[in-house]
Design a protein around this nucleic acid. Structure first.
Lengths: 147, 147
DNA sequence: TATTGTTATACTCTATAACTATA
DNA sequence: TATAGTTATAGAGTATAACAATA
């Protein structure tokens, strides 16, 4: 898909289509902005979740993320290979792995956050601050988040 | 990706992430709603564009859509196999194909539109009418559409 | 030599389900 | 018998670039 020009009418009149278009465009831009760090968007989400509550098991991460179990394995494998996260053994139950960030993982996450903030500022530039906040609140409500 | 629960904090605080999440969720739901008609989302977009201006060449459709040339061929092949669209020869330039809907294509498009309208009503149900219109206008502005 | 359309191919991403180990 | 994690595999979807035909 190409996102180099505004979407064509009459599709661009429908809210559902606009939502898909803007969302997929944002995902696309984010993937590209993250690539120089060697990360893909799910990596960023996972690093963020591990950082928010270190030591969770993979299943707990599956439950609180959008990633299914087999993709979780693959993504954590990649983060380990990059030296950004590690699985630690739980002595009480050797089936369970506690997932932590490495020091390098924490610093890479900080860099990635800067990339994300910069991209958002750029991609949302057609809107002023008040409009951005209105959009954010509408999207939270739409996503089913209670405030 | 799973979209069966609201996205996790702290990701769900960022407008960019919310945009991706809602957009991909909508695309996902739309793909599923369209499947019983034997269509995928690009088919719907293409049928809509052909209907809006019948007789365009494939290149013109490429230029005014988000679909790249080789995917355009594949998508039109599929629409022809389904009996929904047809390539007509241009006598003046035999390289160019004029793309039209068949009668069946027009009626399938009408059905698909109903599906799309129903899905949008459903997926946007957390918002009231005024909020939906605000969202629509913000998304148009964000997409770079001048009003 | 440029344009229109097509084909072939390779790649990313993900989902499904089967499998291993521990409990 | 149930749970945590893993592996293997197949499938959808898309992008890249080479190719054929017509102009």
């Amino acid at each position: 898909m190409r996102f180099d020009q505004p979407p064509p009418e009459p599709l661009a009149s429908a809210t559902g289509f606009l939502l898909s278009w803007n969302g997929q465009r944002m995902a696309h831009l984010f993937a590209r902005a993250l690539a120089p760090l060697g990360l893909r968007p799910p990596h960023f989400g996972l690093l963020t979740l591990i950082d928010a509550e270190p030591g969770r098991t993979q299943q707990e991460l599956v439950a609180s993320s959008m990633i299914d179990p087999s993709s979780m394995v693959a993504n954590l494998d990649e983060l380990e290979q990059l030296g950004l996260a590690e699985r630690r053994q739980n002595p009480a139950d050797r089936r369970k792995h506690a997932v932590h960030l490495t020091r390098r993982g924490a610093s890479t996450l900080a860099k990635a956050r800067k990339v994300a903030v910069g991209l958002a500022a750029d991609a949302l530039s057609p809107l002023d601050d008040a409009e951005r906040e209105t959009l954010r609140l509408l999207l939270r409500k739409l996503a089913g988040i209670e405030d």
